[in-house]
C-alpha cells in the first residue's frame, strides 16, 4: 500500500499529492510516469511524475480531475493509501548536453514540465519557461517555475494573469528575438503540443513532446498506447512518453484520445451522483 502523505489543492480542478513509494522514488527521473489504482476495483491510471525525493522515498503527482478515476483519487485524503503505485515507467526525458532550452507547459501539463525544467536548470542549462493557462485561477507552480528557470513567461488565454495570448505566440516571439534553442520541450494538451511542433518545425528547432495516450498496463503488453511517429507504430509506455514532436501524428492521437469519451462522461456523472449522495 502506498500512503498519501500530503494532499494540496493547487487550483479548483488540480491537486497535488505526495505519495510514499520508496522503490519508485529511488529511480524516478523527469519525463517518467507511474500507474496508480486508487482501490481494488479501480482502473489503472497513468500520471507523469511531477517531483520526487529519493531520501524521503516520496513521489509527487499532480492531477486534474477529469473523469471517474481522478475523482476517486481526489476523494482520498492524506493518511489513506493507494492500492497500487507502480513505476517509474517510460524513458526519462533526454537532458544531457543541452545548453539552452525553451520548456513550454500548458495547463496541468505544467506539472510535468516542471521537473524537467528544474533538472535542466540544475544541470546549468539556460532555461526559458513558457507556461500557459486559461485564466488566473488555474495558474499552478508559478513560484517553482520562476525559481527553476532563467526567464519565465506566464500566459493566460484571457489576460487575467501574465500576458494575454497563447504559448505559441510567446515562443515565436522569443525565437524571432534571436534566441537559439538547442531544443524545445513541450508538455500540455495535444492541441498545444501540435501547434508548438508546427511552429518549431517552421524554424527548424528540435522539439520533444510528452504524450499521454490511453494506457492499461503501461509496461509494454497491451498496445493501447500506440502512436504513429514518423510513420511507424510506437508505444508510449516503453518507447516514450517523449517523442520527436515533428514526427508525431497528432491528429490521429487526438482522435484516439476520444475513444471512450462517452463512457467517461457517464462514469463522471456516476461518480458525481455517488458523491452527491454521500454529501446528502
Amino acid at each position: 500500500m502506498f500512503e498519501i502523505l500530503l494532499k494540496q489543492r493547487l487550483n479548483p480542478t488540480v491537486t497535488k499529492m505526495v505519495i510514499h513509494a520508496p522503490f519508485v522514488a529511488r529511480k524516478a527521473e523527469p519525463g517518467q510516469f507511474i500507474i496508480f489504482r486508487a482501490h481494488e476495483d479501480s482502473e489503472r491510471v497513468p500520471l507523469t511524475i511531477a517531483d520526487y525525493d529519493r531520501e524521503a522515498g516520496t513521489v509527487t503527482i499532480i492531477y486534474q480531475i477529469v473523469g471517474g478515476s481522478t475523482m476517486e483519487l481526489n476523494a482520498m485524503e492524506a493518511g489513506e493509501s493507494l492500492c497500487d503505485f507502480v513505476g517509474p515507467l517510460g524513458v526519462a526525458t533526454h537532458t544531457e548536453g543541452l545548453r539552452k532550452v525553451a520548456v513550454v507547459g500548458g495547463g496541468v501539463g505544467c506539472a510535468i514540465a516542471y521537473p524537467v525544467t528544474k533538472k535542466l536548470h540544475d544541470l546549468g542549462c539556460e532555461v526559458h519557461a513558457i507556461v500557459g493557462f486559461r485564466n488566473a485561477d488555474l495558474v499552478i507552480l508559478e513560484e517553482e517555475f520562476a525559481a527553476a528557470s532563467d526567464k519565465l513567461f506566464l500566459m493566460t488565454d484571457d489576460g487575467s494573469r501574465g500576458e494575454k495570448g497563447l504559448v505559441t505566440a510567446a515562443l515565436e516571439k522569443l525565437i524571432l528575438e534571436g534566441n537559439q534553442y538547442d531544443e524545445v520541450i513541450a508538455i500540455g494538451p495535444l492541441v498545444m503540443m501540435k501547434f508548438v511542433s508546427l511552429l518549431t518545425k517552421k524554424y527548424g528547432v528540435r522539439t520533444t513532446v510528452s504524450m499521454n495516450p490511453i494506457m492499461i498496463d503501461g509496461t509494454g503488453m497491451c498496445g493501447g498506447c500506440r502512436l504513429t511517429v514518423g510513420g511507424e507504430t510506437k508505444f508510449a509506455c516503453v518507447d516514450g512518453p517523449d517523442f520527436d514532436g515533428h514526427l508525431v501524428d497528432f491528429d490521429e492521437a487526438i482522435k484516439r484520445a476520444s475513444m471512450y469519451a462517452e463512457f467517461e462522461r457517464h462514469a463522471r456523472e456516476a461518480a458525481c451522483n455517488l458523491m452527491n449522495r454521500e454529501v446528502q
Binding site: 500506440r226 490521429e252 482522435k255 475513444m259
Partner: peptide, 19 residues
C-alpha cells in the same frame, strides 16, 4: 489500424479479464 475500435487482442482481453 489506429482508428477507434481497433484493438490488439492483448488490450481487448486485458480490459475484459484483468480489468
Amino acid at each position: 489500424e489506429s482508428l477507434k475500435g481497433v484493438y490488439s487482442a492483448n488490450e481487448y482481453l486485458t480490459r475484459i479479464n484483468l480489468m
